[in-house]
Nucleic acid binder design. Structure first.
Lengths: 144, 144
DNA sequence: TCTCATTTCGGAATCATTCCAGTTTGTGCT
DNA sequence: AGCACAAACTGGAATGATTCCGAAATGAGA
C-alpha cells in the first residue's frame, strides 16, 4: 500500500487533524492523476486550477510542503538551497545530515545492502534518495 | 586517483585546451582546500576572493559549471530546477532521463548491484547519485 | 449557528543562478 | 617581445522557484 490513492490521502488528512478543503482535494486529484509524472508545483497548480474554482500558487506550495512533512508524499528535492560540489568522482553515497548539513562520502562495497549502510557509518537514515542520471531507452532510440 | 588535487586539475585544464587564469587557480585552491566540505558557489567565491585579487561571482558560477561539464568535479545537484514530488513512498531509485526529464521509479531488489540496474531497465547511466538523508552520529549525540 | 484556529490569498521579498554586453587577458604565432 | 583573437572575466540586470506576510475566508467541532 505505498502508491498514493485519493481516499487514503483523505483519510490521512483526517487522522492528522488537517482540514479537508476544496483546494486540497483539487491538489490531491492532481497528485493522483499525475502520479507517474512526478509532478512539480507548477503542474499541480495548473491541474488543480481546473478542478477548484480558486487555487493560488502559494496554497499549492504550502500544501505540498504540508503533505510532504506529514509523510503523504515524498519531495524529490530536499532543503538544500545552494548547489554543492564534490571533488570525489568515484561512485559513492553522500550521507547528508538533516541537521548540520554535513555531507559524508560513503564508498559503496561491491554488494550494496542499503539498510546496512546506516549501521556501518553510525548514520541514521530517515530518507533515502538514489538517483541514476542518464538516458532512458525511449530517448536512446531517438536520434540526437 | 579519484580525489581532487591541484596539479591534476591544472593538467586536465591544459589537456582540454582550457586557459589557466588566476581566477581558475583561486577556484581550484578553494575547491581543493575545502574538498571535505562539499562547498557551494558562495563558499568557493569567498575563499577564492582571498587568493585572487578579483573574482566575480559570475565567474565562480561559470567556472564551476565548466569544471563539472568537463568532469573535473561533480555537481551535487543536477539541472532540475523545479522541485518534484513522488507519491511512491517505498524505497526505490528514480531513474531520471537527462534528455526528456522522465523519472522512472525502479524498485530495488534485496541485493542491489548498481551496475546491473542499467541493463535491467534499459537505461544508460551516465551519472549516479545516491543520497541517504538522516542524522550523522555527531548530531545524534547532541541534544535537541 | 457560532467560534476560532486553520487555510487561503496574492503580492512582495528572497535567493541561487543565469544572462548579457562590454572589457580584459591567456596563448599560440611571428 | 609584440600581435591577434578566441576565451574568460565582470557586474549588474533578469529569471524563476520558493517563501513570507498580513489580511480575508472558511472548515469543523461545540
Amino acid at each position: 500500500m505505498r502508491k498514493i490513492n485519493k481516499e487514503n490521502l483523505i483519510d490521512q488528512l483526517k487522522q492528522k487533524g488537517l482540514k479537508i478543503t476544496p483546494q486540497r482535494l483539487a491538489i490531491i486529484d492532481a497528485l493522483v492523476e499525475n502520479r507517474h509524472a512526478h509532478p512539480g508545483a507548477t503542474l499541480i497548480y495548473n491541474e488543480a486550477s481546473k478542478k477548484a474554482k480558486r487555487v493560488s500558487l502559494s496554497t499549492v506550495y504550502a500544501t505540498l510542503k504540508e503533505f510532504s512533512e506529514s509523510g503523504l508524499i515524498k519531495q524529490l528535492e530536499f532543503d538544500r538551497m545552494e548547489n554543492r560540489y564534490d571533488g570525489d568522482l568515484s561512485e559513492h553515497i553522500n550521507l547528508i545530515c538533516k541537521r548540520c548539513g554535513t555531507i559524508i562520502d560513503y564508498h559503496i562495497p561491491a554488494t550494496l545492502e542499503p539498510k546496512d549502510i546506516a549501521r556501518k557509518a553510525g548514520f541514521v537514515v530517515t530518507d533515502t534518495r538514489m538517483e541514476f542520471h542518464g538516458y532512458c531507452c525511449d530517448c536512446l532510440k531517438r536520434p540526437g
